[in-house]
Design a protein around this nucleic acid. Structure first.
Lengths: 219, 219
DNA sequence: CGGTGTGAACTCTTTCACAGCG
DNA sequence: CGCTGTGAAAGAGTTCACACCG
């Protein structure tokens, strides 16, 4: 039906974001074209897989040559929907929250914090970057006023679900959760989780898998 | 052959870590048994999938009743290899690094920072928690002395690969990378990546997918 | 020729349905 | 009768091999 079958696998989308980062670096370095092999190597994936990922956007390379760096970068930017900056609100200004609020990587990639919130009076009023920490009460008003579409949670686990509910009710459509709980959100609201403990535990497991004996020292 | 076929899918391992967290919370709350349904709901997964995940450890529930909370928690702790604390070194003590160094969640879950490193003289000597930031030169010595098995990277992207190489050479077997680059590590060294920009971009994409029109408000 | 785009084979995961034990 | 444990089916996602175009 559609010329672009609106179905790009989520795994592919995540990799497209990686390709975009690599392309941005290449463009900064003055490169004008790349082959799938080189791009795949820089992104840590299989070349054929990369080509399949890109095939979801329709043809965007030149056979026998490769991909135009700037062109592909712009295309990915549009597809991912980061051509225009997305407003983000950050709730929970502890150590991690402060670090994220200050993290330069966001602004340069199509995301901008438009509100920082905390429940603790001690934090309220504190300046981080160009923003001032506000009381949690103002959450709904700020979301409405700024049209923020993304919420980032760095609160303690106990309050994360409640804040999630408020964000969803206020009209935020996407939530990135750093609190170590599994959130439930209404349909239409996407939640992604980053759990540092889980990552470390997976590493611990993989590490012990290899230990038992000096397994395959290849060649 | 083996009573425990050493092959637990990585996707399963990640979920086991989530189950472990939920079980710890339940145990703290005084619960003694859970059903797969309840546990699955708290972990945000399908009950049948949870049972299949647990089946990789051999039978560990009681039919008609459910799972013993404390028993299953201890079992998962052993399987994941976090019964004994793992030493971690953290390289790159910027905002994010400082936040992680201070993050209580690690110590309580079988991980302990045994060394903090930074290249900047301004950071060296600074105290965070019970540790003092050391010069990057000391990295190899500290890894050797402490037997640290995990490295956490919160350096700028430009130096991440070099630090990764040093960590691997020093004997670190697992690396958790927060720098926005794809790392290459020798065989036998596992790398996991946490890329905040990628997470946000995936959310941006999913968000715009739903926007076009009031799509399927079901029922 | 070189490198892209893609159908087909393969592997890995998830889901379902039900057998089996308490 | 309830809930676990599990084979079998369905579904994603990944890899391969090669046709096709510049």
């Amino acid at each position: 039906m559609q010329p672009r079958p609106r179905t790009i696998p989520e795994a592919t989308v995540a990799r497209l974001a990686v390709y975009l980062r690599v392309l941005a670096t290449l463009a900064d370095g003055g490169r004008s074209t790349v082959s799938s092999g080189e791009l795949a190597s820089a992104a840590g994936v299989n070349p054929a897989g990369l080509r399949k990922d890109l095939s979801h956007l329709g043809p965007c390379g030149v056979r026998g040559v490769g991909y135009d760096v700037a062109l592909l970068r712009d295309r990915l930017t549009r597809v991912l929907g980061v051509e225009r900056a997305h407003g983000c609100v950050l709730v929970g200004i502890g150590n991690l929250g402060s670090a994220l609020a200050d993290y330069a990587g966001f602004g340069t990639r199509g995301f901008e914090f438009v509100g920082l919130f905390d429940a603790s009076p001690a934090r309220i009023g504190q300046r981080i970057g160009s923003l001032q920490v506000r009381a949690l009460d103002e959450l709904e008003d700020v979301v409405a006023a700024t049209g923020a579409s993304i919420g980032v949670l760095t609160t303690p686990a106990e309050v994360a679900q409640r804040v999630c509910d408020r964000l969803a009710a206020a009209g935020v459509r996407s939530i990135l959760n750093f609190a170590p709980v599994t959130l439930t959100a209404p349909a239409g609201v996407d939640v992604r989780k980053v759990d540092l403990s889980v990552e470390l535990q997976v590493l611990a497991f993989l590490g012990q898998q290899r230990v038992p004996a000096g397994v395959g020292e290849s060649a």
